[in-house]
């Protein structure tokens, strides 16, 4: 190749060289940040695990999970109350939110409503997901709790013999935390379910109609079974969200240190424990809180990876 100098500037060759370096540098830079996402996740896990180490050593795994005692005065910690609370509130929230969320998804994916009503409905459900958790907590404390007091007292007085309703309801407790959690996870369930219902091949609907199935026979026997893994994936994601949800639960659950079978009793969750105690903790208590956070991290990680796996499988199938 003729030397570029011939072109009397001498710059062309030099610029290619810089350009090449810059180009490679840019690629490496983006790689660094891409990989940085994984590193961040790893850093979170390591940081929390290392800080939790003193507590892990002292209380072991089994004892920490199964003992219901959180005593900063004597520095003895077991997180069963909080783990139980996390699981039970999330479970009740799912129980409420899944049927309603799937119902909303059906409304949004079918043509029950005219398009000009459906669009605002989609927007409003999205908005439900965008409202800050702490605002839900505020609303739950000052609006929902007084509203529910009457009916819940009635439940307790008439059905108090059922363990679920065995304690008198106060403004705070497992029941109201679960209810607000249900409201908060509903949009996740409905939007993911809607996507998977809408992605069912329209030919299947035609086939079912062609055989004389009604709309509901088609939905129940063909559309929903076909979309079911996507719906389950959405429910799992919602479960992960419910388990990690902090502010609304902290403000509504009452933060009691004892587990109780009654829905009206006050309880606690891992995230509520962290929110309540972290700022004033010291020494071994910090390590124990880190340990609790690690358990929450692992729990949500398992649920999310499963959800991710299920949703992935659905996406591959669609192709």
């Amino acid at each position: 190749m003729a030397p570029a100098v011939e072109r009397n500037t001498g710059m062309s060759y030099e610029r290619t060289q810089t350009s090449r370096v810059v180009d490679n540098g840019f690629k490496w830079l983006t790689w660094l940040f891409g990989v940085g996402i994984g590193v961040t996740l790893l850093a979170i896990a390591l940081q929390v695990a290392i800080d939790a180490w003193p507590a892990i050593q002292k209380f072991g795994i089994f004892d920490f999970i199964t003992v219901a005692r959180w005593n900063p005065v004597e520095d003895i910690y077991g997180a069963w109350t909080q783990i139980y609370g996390t699981l039970i509130t999330s479970f009740i929230a799912l129980l409420i939110a899944v049927p309603i969320g799937v119902g909303v998804a059906i409304i949004l994916s079918e043509d029950f409503l005219p398009e000009r009503l459906r669009q605002p409905l989609v927007f409003m459900v999205e908005l439900l997901a965008a409202i800050p958790s702490v605002v839900y907590g505020l609303w739950g404390m000052f609006v929902l709790a007084p509203l529910l007091q009457g009916p819940m007292t009635w439940l307790h007085q008439n059905f108090g013999w059922i363990p679920l309703f065995s304690t008198p309801p106060t403004g705070r407790g497992i029941y109201i935390a679960s209810l607000v959690l249900a409201i908060m996870i509903l949009p996740i369930i409905s939007s993911i379910s809607r996507d998977s219902l809408a992605s069912v091949n329209p030919a299947l609907r035609q086939a079912a109609y062609g055989l004389g199935a009604t709309r509901w026979e088609t939905l129940i026997q063909v559309i929903i079974p076909t979309a079911i893994s996507g719906i389950i994936g959405g429910v799992m994601l919602a479960l992960g969200r419910a388990m990690g949800e902090t502010m609304a639960v902290t403000m509504l659950i009452g933060n009691s240190p004892r587990p109780s079978p009654s829905l009206f009793a006050q309880g606690s969750t891992i995230s509520a424990l962290l929110a309540n105690q972290f700022a004033e903790a010291s020494g071994l208590q910090v390590a124990a809180l880190m340990y609790a956070a690690l358990i929450l991290f692992v729990l949500t990680l398992i649920v999310n990876v499963l959800a991710e796996y299920i949703v992935k499988k659905v996406e591959i199938k669609k192709l």
Binding site: L204, Q206, A207, G210, L211, G212, V222, P225, T226
Partner: peptide, 28 residues
């Protein structure tokens, strides 16, 4: 719906349900 039960339809694209062969036939 009653009409479609008596007058069957086969479509351009084969559209079996993602169910077993048996359940596909038994659907109607």
């Amino acid at each position: 719906v009653e009409v479609r039960r008596q007058i069957g339809m086969v479509f351009q694209q084969p559209n079996p349900f993602p169910k077993t062969i048996y359940d596909n036939i038994a659907f109607g």
